[in-house]
């Protein structure tokens, strides 16, 4: 009887210790703390790459790999996105058939506002991205929406990012707004969830795998990811939006990819951009 009692005590001790270990903060609406997440991510990269400056993470892999940086700096002497920015400005300033333009749809005439996107739209109860608002602007003025991934939408977005360069990201999760917090948490969960036939999460490549070779490529750190979008990617040979890249990454894990601007991708962008709060806009960028 005594032995049974003692084993019961031992089991209780063991179970309680397991319970303590399994109680994970930051995984529920009640416990998630975006600011703590942001600091933890920064600290992770500070420990991982102690020589890299925090502000330099807006340059992706070029913040942590000297050889790649050298090549990139050469590339940036004649930025491949330059013509796209010019075309984006032309498109942005071209009036719609009704005489109005993009400037009429955005705060401050659409200039210097990239750092505020994406944001939580309380009324629509969803995350809104810059590209989404560009198309909403078109549609509300009787124009057809643009395709999401490349071409005119990326050029307009690039021009808007260009006018916002060096502005500090300031993504807000309104206090007490459970919907906004839930969208952030969904984005966080997507980022860390393994999926697809290759069983890969975003974090596998861009957290644990940053600056580690995947075939001939070095995966960039997650911190600062959205700061330089849209990007001119040498692999694409053109400018593309963040959601074009999301779709490609999702497909690379051998998942059936979501559509660009799908709510899940918008939540992911909300999470990722919040993680980059305090860093500056430096889009458009160029990448391999």
């Amino acid at each position: 009887m005594k032995i049974i009692k003692n084993i019961t005590i031992g089991l209780s001790l063991l179970l309680s210790s397991q319970l303590v270990f399994s109680a994970q903060p930051g995984t529920t609406l009640a416990s998630v703390n975006p600011e703590a997440d942001r600091m933890a991510l920064q600290n992770y990269f500070k420990k991982r790459f102690p020589d890299a400056e925090l502000a330099d993470y807006v340059n992706g892999i070029y913040a942590v790999d000297a050889d790649s940086r050298e090549q990139w700096e050469e590339l940036e002497s004649f930025p491949p996105y330059e013509f796209d920015v010019e075309e984006g400005e032309r498109l942005f300033k071209t009036a719609f058939a009704n005489g109005k333009g993009y400037a009429d749809c955005f705060e401050n005439g659409g200039v210097g506002i990239r750092q505020n996107f994406p944001y939580w739209d309380k009324e629509a109860s969803t995350v809104k991205t810059l590209e989404q608002e560009i198309n909403e602007c078109r549609e509300s003025n009787g124009e057809k929406p643009l395709k999401w991934g490349k071409g005119a939408i990326a050029q307009i977005s690039a021009y808007m990012a260009w006018t916002s360069r060096d502005n500090v990201f300031d993504i807000k999760i309104p206090e007490g707004d459970e919907g906004a917090l839930a969208a952030y948490l969904e984005g966080k969960k997507f980022f860390y969830t393994k999926r697809g036939q290759l069983n890969l999460s975003c974090a596998n490549c861009h957290l644990q795998g940053s600056n580690v070779r995947i075939r001939a490529d070095l995966a960039g750190p997650a911190l600062g990811h959205p700061s330089h979008f849209p990007v001119f990617r040498s692999k694409w040979g053109s400018l593309g939006t963040l959601h074009r890249r999301y779709k490609g990454c999702h497909k690379d894990s051998r998942s059936k990819p979501l559509d660009m601007q799908h709510e899940t991708f918008r939540n992911l962008e909300y999470f990722q951009t919040y993680m980059s709060n305090g860093l500056v806009v430096n889009g458009p960028g160029s990448r391999k």
């Binding site: 994970q24 933890a40 991510l41 992770y44 969960k189 860390y192 393994k194 644990q208």
Partner: peptide, 13 residues
């Protein structure tokens, strides 16, 4: 099913 229980394991703390 695995992800639902374990997605948080690689979140930096």
């Amino acid at each position: 099913a695995y992800a639902e229980k374990n997605w948080h394991l690689s979140v930096p703390q």
